[in-house]
Structures are given as C-alpha cells and as structure tokens.
Design a binder for these strands. Structure first.
Lengths: 187, 187
DNA sequence: CGAGCACTTGATCTATGTCAACGGTAGTGG
DNA sequence: CCACTACCGTTGACATAGATCAAGTGCTCG
C-alpha cells in the first residue's frame, strides 16, 4: 500500500455499515477487524451470509456487477483499504485471490452452523481472534452477543451461557467482562 | 461451447467424485445436475462446504493455486464442460463470474442451516430443482437422504419425516418413491 | 435521575437427535 | 430363478440441547 492508498483507507467503528447490498462502489481489503456480510433472503429478511476477517477482500463482485451483492457491517473496529490498489485491475491474479477468499469465507460460514453450541461459539471466536496467540482476549475484540447469536444460529441466551461455561473451564479468558451500550452509530 | 469442448465434456453418475481436495486440475462448468463441495475441517473430517447447481463454475481456484480447494461429489447425475473454454484465461470477466458463483454458493449453503427442519429441506429441494416449474419432482432428481441430512445439518430420520410431511401436505410430489442402492461407483 | 440497551440467569417447553426395529430394492453368487 | 447381503429409507419410543419466556443487573447516554 502506497501513501495515496493509505490516505484513502477507511476506519469503521463497531456496528457501522460499510456498504449496503445493491449500492454502487468498489472492492476493499480488510486490513484489520472483522466484518459481517448479509444478504436479503427470499422472505425479504436480512440474513447472515459470511464473515470477513483480516486480509480478506470484500465486494470484488463490483468489478463485474458494478454494485455490491451483500451488505457489510463492522463486527468490531475495522480498517479498510481500497483494493486492488495500484495494480492493474484487468490482471486476473488479484481477482483470483478474492475468489479464494470468497470460497473460504463460504465454507467457514457453514462450519459456524455445525455441531454443538460450544463448538460453534469456540470456532467463531477462533476465527475472529486467529491472529492472537494467548487465550486472553480483550472483550472489545468480540462482537455483541446478538451478532454472535445471529452468526452461529443460536440465541443470545445460549451464547451467553456458552461463554460463561468456556470462561469457567478456563478455555477462554475475556479481559473486560461487560460491553455496555455501543457508541452512537452514524450509518 | 464449440465441438472440441463438447467432446471434452464429462458425465458423472450420482455419487461419483469429480475431484478431490488438493489434486491438480482445472475448472469446470456444471451444465446440468448438482454437485456437493466438501473440505477437510480442522478435525480432519470431510465437511460440507457448498452446493453447486446448473450454471455454476467449479474449481476456479485452480487457476490461482493449481489444485482444488474442495472435494466434489455428484449428488445427482451431472454433465460438466471444461471452463473457461475457448475464451482467453487471462481475461478477468469469466473469473468474476466464478467469483459471483462462489459468493452466492456460500450464502446459499449458510441458508440451508437456518430455521426449522421443514424450511431447510424445502429450501434445499428448491435449490436443486429451481429450473423445474411443477411440484412433481422425479425422485432421481433428489440426492440420497444421507446427503440431504449432511447438507442441512439434520439427521436422516428427520429428513425422511419432513419429506413425508411435505408430501402429505401436497407441498411436494415425488414421482418414484424409492431409490434403492445406487449404481456401483467407479471413483 | 430515568430510559434503553447489553448481558445474565432461571424455569419450562419442544424440535430434533438418538437408538432401534423393520421393510424394500438391487446386486451377487449359486 | 432364488437365497443372501448390504444398503436405503421409514417409523416409533425416548432423551436432550437449545429455544422460549421472563425477571433482574449494570452500563451509557441524555
């Protein structure tokens, strides 16, 4: 990333939207944080469709379609840079990277719906914190329980109980227990 | 598709593998039928990762990586043609089509894990039969119950009961009730 | 200080899993 | 042609993970 791109980079607070499905725009590279992708299902409901983490490319489909297929919302604070940046857009290689990302993302999202509640929540936390080595996790790294519940197809209550169990076992150590109300959203 | 490609096209019987994760190869376009994609999860288990239907591109990641990311197995009889065929591989457009397919596939796979058993099974059947207009569905269009159970994260018993209910309701009409043992597999 | 939201926790209910028995179909080998 | 075998699918009885409903705590903001 050169200086121009650095200047065009974008920060999102937890809960902010990056873009909405159908709106026009261009692709982004997620430099840090985690983002939730949603689409409108056949019932008109906004439904979870994927999870993007550090290093992933988002919205590459705009190169083909001009507009975004999914909506995207920051699960935690995020940093984004324009993509593919200075390299020529007609080269296939960066697009193939986006393709590989999209495939892995889809498979990961499916795996968050497999198995028991504890396994699902653990897997989600590992995906969100996969760069961290210690089990000590700042609470702010995790999205709200409502989000985690949505992503894992569990309920808030179950996620809460599961997290308590994991902490009691020592599997997970969260540093600041409570979240409180998030900062006011501007999106 | 020109004559050369037609000649290189491939037919798969229900249950046959097209390729295995990690093996070398090139992309395919699924001309008819449905294919299940799997990957090896962190426990070494083969886990459902996506569902490809008529018109989808499979294995586009080989253009980047040389080898397949997922394993692929025919859920029903399939016809495949090499992709991107005669068009130049360095052009980004076909790759972008593969990208869009991969994204939709991921979101569809997630949606098959949402909601109650009946809704999940219904959604799967619609995806497999989306080209059909009538509710009358030849049983051979559907994959084995074990596959459907795996894909929807239900059990064989539940899928069976759900299908019975849907048929009793008249929501679904299957034409030949039973499947029996599938033909001997050569792959 | 009051309102609203995020989270926790308890009691109860239920959809679905588990376990098990059975029948039907297709392939196999005599 | 007829067992024999191996699955695939169906169905029932029972167990349970997680949903639902509900009450309560503690943030943060205005």
């Amino acid at each position: 990333m050169d200086d121009r791109e650095m200047a065009r980079s974008l920060r999102l607070a937890c809960g902010q939207n990056l873009y909405a499905a159908g709106s026009t725009g261009s692709p982004w590279l997620l430099a840090s944080g985690s983002i939730r992708l949603d689409r409108i299902d056949q019932d008109g409901e906004r439904a979870f469709a994927g999870l993007a983490v550090k290093g992933d490319v988002l919205g590459a489909e705009t190169l083909l379609l001009g507009c975004y297929t999914f909506s995207s919302t920051a699960l935690t604070a995020c940093e984004l840079v324009p993509w593919p940046g200075t390299s020529v857009q007609t080269e296939p290689l960066p697009v193939l990277k986006a393709l590989a990302d999209a495939e892995r993302r889809g498979a990961d999202a499916v795996s968050l719906r497999c198995g028991e509640a504890a396994a699902r929540v653990k897997r989600l936390i590992l995906m969100l914190a996969h760069s961290l080595s210690s089990p000590h996790l700042p609470r702010r790294m995790l999205p709200a329980l409502t989000e985690m519940a949505d992503i894992t197809a569990l309920t808030v209550g179950t996620v809460s109980r599961t997290l308590s169990t994991l902490q009691a076992e020592g599997t997970l150590v969260l540093q600041d227990r409570r979240r409180g109300r998030p900062p006011a959203r501007s999106g």
